[in-house]
Design a protein around this nucleic acid. Structure first.
Lengths: 188, 188
DNA sequence: CCTACCGATCGGTAGG
DNA sequence: CCTACCGATCGGTAGG
C-alpha cells in the first residue's frame, strides 16, 4: 500500500467518526505521524479524499448494476444478484461505505451533481429489476420509489451493525436479507 | 413562535444541508438577518441547538415506546402501533429528524453517551415487541439485532423521500410500511 | 440587537 | 518530509 492509500485509509477512519468537515488535515497528518503540510505531496487537497472515496464506491455499485442489467438471468435471480453484490461491496469496504453514505453531501460541484445522478441511476436500475419481476408487479407506480429506497436503506444499514469477524458470514447475510426483502415486497 | 424557536428552525434547515460542523453561527445569523453575536442572547452556544434537537426527538421516541410497552395490546398490535408512532414522529418533524439521525455523533459528552443509551433502549424495546409476537419468534437470537436495525432503517428512510404534501397520506404510509416489514420478517 | 474584537484553528503554500 | 507562515474563518465575549 503506497503512501497515498495510507492517507486515504487514515482519513476515512477519522471521517467516519468526526465527519468530513470535522476532520482537519492536521488530524489526518497526526494520525500518520507527519506534519499537515507533508500531506500535500501526495494529494492535491482535502476534497480529493472525499471525492475519490465517493466515486470509487459509486463506480463499484454502478458496475455491478450494469452487469446485472446486461445479463440474461431471470428477473428474480437478478434481484438476488443485486442484493448479493450490494452487500458484498458494503462489507468489503465498511469504513469507506460509511463516508460514501453520509458525507457525500459535502462534495462540491460538479462532483455533487454527478454523484446524485449516479445514485439516481442506481435506484432506477433497481426499480427496473423490480418491475421485470412479475411476482410483484402488482404494486402501484407511486410505491416504487418507496420500495426502492426502503430496500436500499435496509441493505445500507449493514454498515451500522455488521462485524466482518463476527458469527454471521457474508453468504448467510445475503440469504437472510434476500428473504426479508423479497418476502416483504412480494405481497404488497 | 418565539425568537429561540426561530433560531432552532433556521439552524436545523441549514444543518440538514451543510451538516452541524459545516454550519457556522454566522450562517445561522445570516439566515435570520441578524449578526452572529446576537444569537447569544437567545442560546448559550452552538451545541445547544444540536443537543436540544436530538433529545427532543429522542424523548418523543422513548415516550412512544414506553406507552406501547405498558399498554395491554396484543403483540402484533403493539408492532403496528410502534411503526405508526415512529412514522408519525418522523413525518411531523422532517428537518429535525434528519439532524437527529445523522448529526448526533457531534454531540459532546455526557450527551453523546446519553443519546447512545437512549437509542439502545429504543432498539431493545422493539426487540422486546418482536419477541413477544409469537408469529415470528422462530428466528434465531443472532438475527434480532439485524432485524431491529433493518426495520428501523427502512422506517427512518422515510425522511429521505416522503413529501408531506404529496399524494401519499401518512395513514397509507403506515399501512404499506407495516405490510412490507411484517411480511418480511414473519417468515424468517 | 449591534460594533468591535479575541485566541484558536482552518486549508493550503513557499521554499528548502 | 519539514519549518514557517498566509489569509480566512471559526465560536464566542465585552460592552453598550
Amino acid at each position: 500500500m503506497n503512501r497515498r492509500e495510507q492517507i486515504f485509509q487514515t482519513s476515512i477512519k477519522l471521517m467516519k467518526n468526526k465527519g468530513y468537515v470535522g476532520t482537519s488535515m492536521r488530524d489526518i497528518a497526526s494520525g500518520m505521524s507527519i506534519e499537515a503540510a507533508s500531506l500535500y505531496n501526495h494529494i492535491k487537497g482535502k476534497e480529493d479524499i472525499l471525492t475519490d472515496n465517493c466515486f470509487e464506491l459509486a463506480n463499484k455499485f454502478i458496475d455491478s448494476l450494469n452487469t446485472i442489467l446486461k445479463s440474461d438471468e431471470k428477473p428474480l435471480d437478478k434481484l438476488h444478484t443485486f442484493i448479493s453484490n450490494h452487500v458484498n461491496i458494503l462489507v468489503g469496504n465498511m469504513d469507506a461505505a460509511h463516508v460514501f453514505l453520509y458525507e457525500w453531501k459535502h462534495l462540491s460541484e460538479p462532483h455533487y451533481s454527478k454523484f446524485l445522478s449516479m445514485r439516481d441511476e442506481y435506484e432506477q436500475g433497481l426499480r427496473r429489476i423490480l418491475k421485470d419481476d412479475e411476482s410483484n408487479n402488482n404494486f402501484e407506480n407511486s410505491s416504487y420509489k418507496m420500495v426502492v429506497i426502503s430496500v436500499l436503506s435496509s441493505l445500507n444499514a449493514i454498515e451500522q451493525w455488521y462485524k466482518p469477524d463476527g458469527e454471521i458470514k457474508v453468504e448467510e447475510l445475503c440469504n437472510i436479507l434476500s428473504k426479508i426483502l423479497i418476502n416483504g415486497i412480494k405481497e404488497l
